[in-house]
Design a protein around this nucleic acid. Structure first.
Lengths: 336, 336
DNA sequence: TTGAAAGCGCTAACAA
DNA sequence: TTGTTAGCGCTTTCAA
């Protein structure tokens, strides 16, 4: 198992260069030589040393993915898409779980600088656009999922946040709701801005007054949604429906309602975002928005690898994949 | 950004070797020189080239993890444990999602042979013990989670399947059940054998006859649990409780019961395994077994890295972490 | 179509 | 305490 390319060369009666050519599908090798080499490779169970190859070729065939928390299914599904697309192209994926810490994400970005990875995909709201642009300008290849960056090179794949949020809130309005609360995620993340924008648009189109007292946020977490709901209950402003920027926070809404004896959907209609698997099993099943998580992962991984191989010189760098509203019992209740 | 170690050396007025020493915390460098070097490194934004380092040192500081499906929370939580433990020791983690295909797993095992990773952790039932032993004998470092391998070197971390399964079934018996079905996972996986063993033990200790007609299996998947339940319903053998080898399959039981109008827990008590997050939200909440997934990941990653660094010559190589039963409403109903 | 030789960027043995 | 030198195992000119 510790054979080197020269050992194979010796056994096959050729030079190391020839073995290398065979192994890298060079066309300049005669069929006969090729067979000899392949036979030797087989017999010796030879495996080219990855580091040597990487050093010489200056590419690692590896990409990194930074996520805040791999356990959250939103992220693991994206990762799966990335991994599957990478595998099909002989690329490996290094997983970088930041535990929601910017510092850890910055450290992982260093894998670009020391050439551990050929490219990096960020699925996190913490690293700023400027930092990503900096890396891009230094010549590194990177892409983001879930947001877009104002740049000509950096790849991005996101979903139509504004439209589906508008659709979700419009749906609530059609059910007869006029006081609709919004629980956002991180208040400075692009997802959050856009989902709120959709919320506002739906209100505007239906001439429903915007009430700041109905806006709160919960950091995309169950506990955050729970606390936000309790705060909303404390306030004077009544509301009959709530739109949360993701399903996790909607679970928090459910918990708060259970504790306070608020019935869903009779007293309060709820709509989330993600179509987290859990949402189909809870009672009542949660209306939500199906996001193409796996597909976004595949899309960005493919484009990134293309970019690493100069395969998309003239192509676009921003992709949007559509999400769609799924109405379930948590909001399927016509208000008079 | 394309500086090499000699460039730094030049700037600092020392040799490349000295820079290397400083960067690798060698003690043989004077404080003054060290500061000079560090300053140059800083000013030039120098990052050692990973591949060169790897080639020279013959280690990649990377480990691989093979899982059947990263989306399943059982696996993503283990991965998180591995990743976090690895990060703390400056190791990276390459994720290998096999989509339940043995062939893909075999290919990923090749990352050991070509030295892309220093070690590999398998969290999958598909690769046989013999294959793992083969790799180990070739000198590669690997470990498994969820099963144990009869070997002196290969690391393993699992949980006490027999005991907690016995406890789960005993709990059902204490609730007054005498006809208890068992839905297993892959019929040849060690988890499955051991969980079934616990099931049998509980029956034996309580002189409850074993009925083959109450045994079925569902490949650890929701759909499998659903189908197994339907098959059990078809048979003549009546039963009032079911123990499933994981929570996913219990979800399938729920679905089958909903369709057939079988009430949980009044008509059928259900107990699963995993404490999948979902189980606390469904109705009725599912009794299950809390498995230390994250901890198993941490444990094995730490031991594996220790082994890579010859830090555990005399230590054990098999670890068992305890799981415990969580009784919720799905089985909390005393039968007369 | 093949081989010889140089070198990717780093570390470590040896010498000073 | 520091520098010199020799590779780690591969790919890729260049020459034949």
């Amino acid at each position: 198992m510790d054979n080197k390319i020269v050992d194979v060369a010796k056994r096959a009666g050729v030079s190391a260069a020839t073995v290398s050519r065979v192994l890298n599908d060079s066309s300049l090798v005669s069929e006969k030589t090729k067979q000899k080499v392949l036979k030797a490779v087989e017999e010796m169970d030879y495996h080219p040393h990855a580091a040597a190859k990487q050093l010489r070729s200056q590419r690692t065939m590896t990409i990194g993915v930074i996520v805040p928390d791999i356990i959250v299914s939103y992220f693991s599904e994206i990762i799966k898409g990335i991994e599957n697309a990478a595998y099909a192209r002989k690329y490996k994926v290094i997983i970088c779980d930041s535990d929601n810490e910017l510092e850890k994400e910055m450290e992982y970005l260093g894998l670009l600088s020391n050439r551990t990875v050929d490219g990096m995909i960020l699925v996190t709201p913490f690293v700023s656009d400027d930092i990503i642009k900096d890396y891009s300008q230094k010549g590194y290849t990177l892409g983001v999922i879930g947001r877009a960056i104002d740049d000509e090179v950096i790849l991005s794949c996101k979903t139509n946040n504004v439209q589906f949020s508008e659709a979700a809130v419009r749906h609530l309005i059609e059910q007869g709701h006029k006081q609709i609360a919004y629980i956002g995620g991180f208040s400075d993340s692009m997802e959050n801005y856009e989902r709120m924008e959709g919320y506002l648009k739906a209100l505007k189109d239906n001439r429903i007054p915007f009430k700041p007292g109905l806006i709160d946020s919960g950091h995309f977490m169950e506990s955050g949604g729970y606390e936000a709901t309790l705060r909303l209950f404390e306030r004077q402003e009544p509301f009959t429906a709530v739109f949360t920027a993701n399903d996790e926070m909607a679970l928090g809404v459910y918990r708060a309602c259970r504790e306070r004896g608020v019935r869903i959907p009779e007293d309060l209609a709820v709509v989330g975002v993600d179509n987290n698997r859990i949402t189909g099993y809870i009672v009542p099943p949660l209306s939500t928005v199906e996001q193409p998580k796996y597909e976004m992962g595949v899309c960005l991984a493919e484009k990134l690898i293309d970019q690493l191989n100069d395969l998309n010189a003239s192509e676009q760098n921003k992709y949007v994949i559509e999400s769609r509203l799924i109405v379930r019992d948590s909001s399927n209740y016509l208000r008079n």
